[in-house]
Design a protein around this nucleic acid. Structure first.
Length: 428
RNA sequence: GCGGCUAUAGUUCAGCGGCAGAACGCCUGACUGUGGCUCAGGAUGUCGUGGGUUCGAUCCCCACUAGCCGCCCCA
């Protein structure tokens, strides 16, 4: 019989790695809460058209990477429906914002999420078909300040604090403004025009990109092409005055709070809904997938989905990539040890050992319970791997109520009354 | 979706057209209520899957699957 395996691009997360995942998620919730974000949980699948209308019909994500199926009708009166596993979460959040009329509160909505996303790409390091994102959106009616550059700067400052607090060093914030929804098409047209002359002198990839996706030419890494790229039109020259002023205000606010950034006029993003501010936090050591997180402003998205005017800004970070970065940073993190290993000496003491373990666990201690069937030597060996201390429960200890405790690191062995045990272990 | 590299013990990896290997880890004992160090012994396995070539394939060939690197794209 062939063994079943996790399907391509999916994987099991096991201890002790899951401990790291938990730490990242806990840190995110704690940091985001300080900025008054609340958690939203949207469905893992949605109507297909939600994504084609927001992310964009022509994007790679929608045109070739989505898990889509026809959900068949169950009754004569029902129609079948095209459903899709979410490839990202912003569209779902904005759909919920519209559906529940969250804008009617007149307040800014600050919503964060943690969950799996799905894209059918070729798996690679830091790239999986089921991958995890932590993200957040700030969205609301313009009267609530949703359009203000202060929102952009506040979100970026929060992300910088989050990465610092997690202990990730060496990140770079890369910023750009892609202008309003009318600026961008004008720029792309100008770029195409310029590339008609220049592309033939460029690398093969660029010649192809000039046709398929001219913005991608800006991303070319071939050294010989760089002087040519310098001569191409720049998005900054196509921004209207309002977008220019908006971007300048974002930068000023970042300067004021000391968040360092690089401006990259070539930073382009693959989702159609982005307007004005776009950004990435990158990190070396991730190979080709060097973006830890990305995001931007999406001032027209709500309207694209039939909702009210609701400018917003948000981001998503690749949890899988954060974990990879953390693992590389701390190489081999020592597994956390339990407070004590409780070792009953003989099977007749098993029941009492469970009672003792319960007592200690209820006082908040992390306890690994051995087995009276183990020889003492084995209890010590296992205990030494799993816990900081070993607590012996033999006939003497049971009779006297005074337990034998040995601290593995120092080798020091002491006798401690049962009532004082929890405190002693906690301090060890 | 395209190109390249890879797949052998729990792990990291050697290996060879003819008996399946090392290190670490694991188990047992020296040591019946005391771990780490040491010593002696032991078990590791569909050699990724399916075909083909061959007297014989873990090894050579093909396909598939999976992982890694790059492209593309993105988080």
């Amino acid at each position: 019989m062939t063994l079943l395996k996790a399907v391509r691009g999916t994987r099991d997360l096991l201890p002790p790695e899951t401990e790291l995942w938990d730490r990242v998620e806990t840190t995110a919730r704690r940091v985001f809460a300080r900025y008054n974000f609340g958690e939203i949980r949207t469905p893992i699948f949605e109507d297909t058209s939600l994504f084609s209308r927001s992310v964009g019909e022509e994007t790679d994500i929608v045109s070739k990477e989505m898990y889509t199926w026809e959900d068949r009708a169950r009754a004569q009166s029902e129609k079948s429906q095209s459903l899709t596993l979410r490839p990202e979460n912003t569209a779902g959040v904005v759909r919920a914002y519209i559906e529940h009329k969250l804008g009617e509160s007149g307040l800014l909505q600050k919503l964060c999420y943690i969950g799996p996303q799905f894209r059918r790409e070729r798996p690679q390091k830091g790239r999986y078909r089921q991958f995890w994102q932590i993200g957040a959106e700030v969205i609301g009616p313009p009267s609530a300040g949703s359009e203000s550059p202060l929102r952009d700067a506040e979100v970026l400052e929060m992300l910088a604090s989050f990465l610092d607090e997690l202990g990730i060093n060496g990140w770079t914030l890369v910023l750009n403004s892609v202008g309003s929804s009318t600026d961008r098409p004008k720029y792309i047209a100008a770029l195409r025009e310029a590339l008609k002359d220049k592309a033939p002198q460029m690398c093969a990839d660029c010649q192809r990109r000039a046709e398929t996706n001219p913005l991608r030419v800006l991303d070319c890494k071939v050294p010989e092409d760089q002087p040519i790229i310098e001569t191409l039109p720049k998005i900054a020259d196509f921004l209207d005055d309002a977008s220019k002023a908006h971007f300048a205000a974002v930068l000023a606010a970042l300067d004021a709070c000391g968040v360092r950034y690089e401006i990259n006029p070539r930073l382009v993003r693959g989702l159609d809904y982005y307007t004005r501010t776009t950004f990435e936090f990158t990190h070396g050591g991730l190979g080709a997938q060097n973006a830890l997180l990305g995001g931007g402003r999406y001032d027209g998205l709500s309207e694209m989905l039939g909702g009210p005017r609701a400018p917003g800004i948000g981001f998503a970070m690749g949890l899988d990539r954060l974990i990879l970065t953390l693992q590389a940073a701390q190489a081999e993190s020592a597994p956390t040890l339990a407070d004590a290993f409780v070792a009953p000496l003989g099977e007749s003491l098993n029941a009492d050992a469970l009672a003792l373990a319960r007592e200690l666990r209820r006082k908040g201690l992390q306890i690994e319970l051995g087995d009276g069937g183990f020889r003492l030597k084995k209890s010590f060996e296992i205990g030494n791997k799993l816990a900081r201390n070993i607590v012996l429960l033999g006939e003497d200890e049971q009779r006297s109520g005074i337990l034998t405790v040995k601290h593995f690191a120092t080798g020091e062995q002491t006798k401690i009354p049962r009532a004082e045990l929890a405190q002693a272990l906690r301090n060890s």
